[in-house]
Design a protein around this nucleic acid. Structure first.
Length: 432
RNA sequence: GGAGGGGUGCCGGAGUGGUUAAUCGGAGCAGACUGUAAAUCUGCCGCCUGGAAGGGCUACGCAGGUUCGAAUCCUGCCCCCUCCA
């Protein structure tokens, strides 16, 4: 039997179970396990229908790493079966079944991000299909016979929907059961999850004891609010910060969270010390700090965990320059001026005295040629507007600039090297 | 098997014959303001055409029909949900 590498102090245990933790079930038992010196099996599940890891996940993953550092074993479960059902929490929209290839691709994406935070060497990756592919109808019946409808309806989410006359499918009821069985299959000692997973994790506990295993402990972490400050993080709302996003993007998104969320983010996804957090809280309350400064710090703290120090500075520089000083970013998308493009956007070559007729003579761009083009068509073609109507609106709103000049007219001149800017942060450079 | 409810724009959700490209909210976009991409305020928010005023097209599950005119009425079909058995 393997053991954790060192004895653990009560102080360590306390720290582990306090910061960034919503609830531990059962605290005393987990503490006992930790003290036993045994190498614990820590379960973390992942639903391959959504492969991106965001800051909300980081709360639990950071905890996993802390446990790993104390010598424990992480078992990551790829929910290739439950992923097909879709997590019932929230509105019941039946998800399309994922194909095997999709699941595999998603899992790959996920793992790459997962191991940005969690130690790969101390992680065992298991697929649900390892056991569920062999499941027979008999097995399913046996599993379902262990739980009652009343038990499942005890879940707040289910009972609400039931009372409201909203549909609940059988497969949704199956979801917690499968998740519970996972714990049995891998003999989990501790399962990690957000507070919204409490019910499901408890089912695991229950099932384990029914089959004679020692029931797992639950380690529940708080749910991080979405960047919009009110909604739960969701893909369709796009209100989350993905750990795989480029540093500048993360920086920007952090700056875009409502000021009211600053402390929550600090507490849950950074390693800033308690004393400093207290200072921040004070400062915010007494208005002695510009919240923006704190957010900048927050952004740095988050990015440094995912990238190097160098990228942190770059991201910050980028923000200062592009957002605060409204200057041009380092790298902007470039679009070739081709004959084809010019034709599409009704480009006409300029001479000193006026226009040349279209189609011919548009080619062979050189540094000095200028073309008079239809701006709405141009914006559409280079992807800065969704449609011509959209482009016209943007012009009417005086948000389109070419080489620094605001465009008010439908037609305007461009040449090789022209910089097209729409709104505060959409840039394109025309090249030859 | 029986009874009932419903399918509207990215999402939620109004609207029961014309003044409805369709109230409102959210999201999104733009502008103002701010040493934040925060908060707040304002505007925009189907597509095409026009410099603009305007014009045209497409749209309220699908297919027909009634009507000068339909998201709204009728017929058929498809789909979804709840309850009782």
């Amino acid at each position: 039997m393997s053991t954790a590498k060192r004895a653990i102090s009560d102080h360590d245990i306390k720290r582990l179970m306090r910061c960034g933790v919503a609830e531990v079930i059962v605290e005393a038992e987990l503490a006992k396990l930790l003290r036993s010196g045994r190498k614990l099996r820590l379960k973390e599940g992942f639903d391959p229908s959504f492969p991106d890891i965001h800051l909300g996940h980081m709360v639990a993953l950071k905890k996993l790493r802390q446990f790993q550092e104390m010598g424990h074993q992480v078992i990551l479960i790829v929910g290739d079966w439950t992923g097909r059902i879709g997590d019932p929490s929230g509105a019941s929209v039946t998800r399309p079944m994922l194909s095997a290839e999709q699941v595999k691709a998603n899992a790959e994406t996920y793992l790459k991000q997962f191991f940005k935070i969690v130690n790969k060497g101390k992680t065992e990756v298991r697929w649900q299909s390892e056991w569920y592919d062999k499941f027979t109808l008999g097995d399913v019946i046996q599993l379902t016979s262990k739980f009652t409808i009343a038990q499942l309806l005890a879940r707040d989410d289910f009972s609400k929907r039931y009372r409201a006359g909203q549909p609940i499918t059988m497969t949704e009821f199956l979801y917690p059961l499968l998740q519970a069985y996972d714990s049995v299959a891998i003999q989990a000692d501790v399962e990690f999850g957000g507070t919204d997973q409490k019910f499901n994790l408890l089912m695991g506990r229950e099932l384990q004891s029914m089959v004679g295993q020692h029931p797992q402990q639950l380690f529940l972490v708080p749910i991080l609010a979405g960047t919009d400050g009110q909604q739960k993080v969701s893909k369709s709302l796009g209100n989350y910060i993905g750990v795989a996003e480029p540093p500048e993007e993360i920086y920007g998104k952090v700056m875009s969270i409502p000021d009211s969320l600053i402390m929550q983010y600090f507490e849950l996804v950074t390693d800033v010390s308690d004393q400093e957090l207290a200072e921040f809280r004070q400062a915010l309350e007494h208005d002695t700090v510009n919240p923006m400064e704190l957010k900048k710090r927050l952004a740095r703290e988050i990015i440094v965990q995912l990238y190097s120090q160098k990228e942190v500075s770059q991201a910050e520089e980028h923000f200062t320059r592009v957002v605060q000083n409204k200057e041009m970013p380092d790298e902007i998308r470039q679009v070739n001026i081709t004959e084809e493009l010019l034709q599409k956007i009704k480009g006409r070559k300029m001479t000193e005295d006026g226009f040349l007729a279209g189609i011919r003579e548009v080619g062979s761009p050189d540094e000095t040629t200028e073309w008079c083009v239809s701006v709405p068509l141009l914006l559409c073609e280079i992807g800065l507007a969704k449609s011509r109507s959209d482009a016209k609106r943007l012009i009417a709103q005086e948000s389109v600039r070419i080489d620094g000049k605001t465009i008010y007219e439908t037609n305007s001149n461009i040449r090789v090297g022209s910089i097209i800017k729409v709104g505060p942060r959409r840039w394109v450079q025309m090249i030859g």
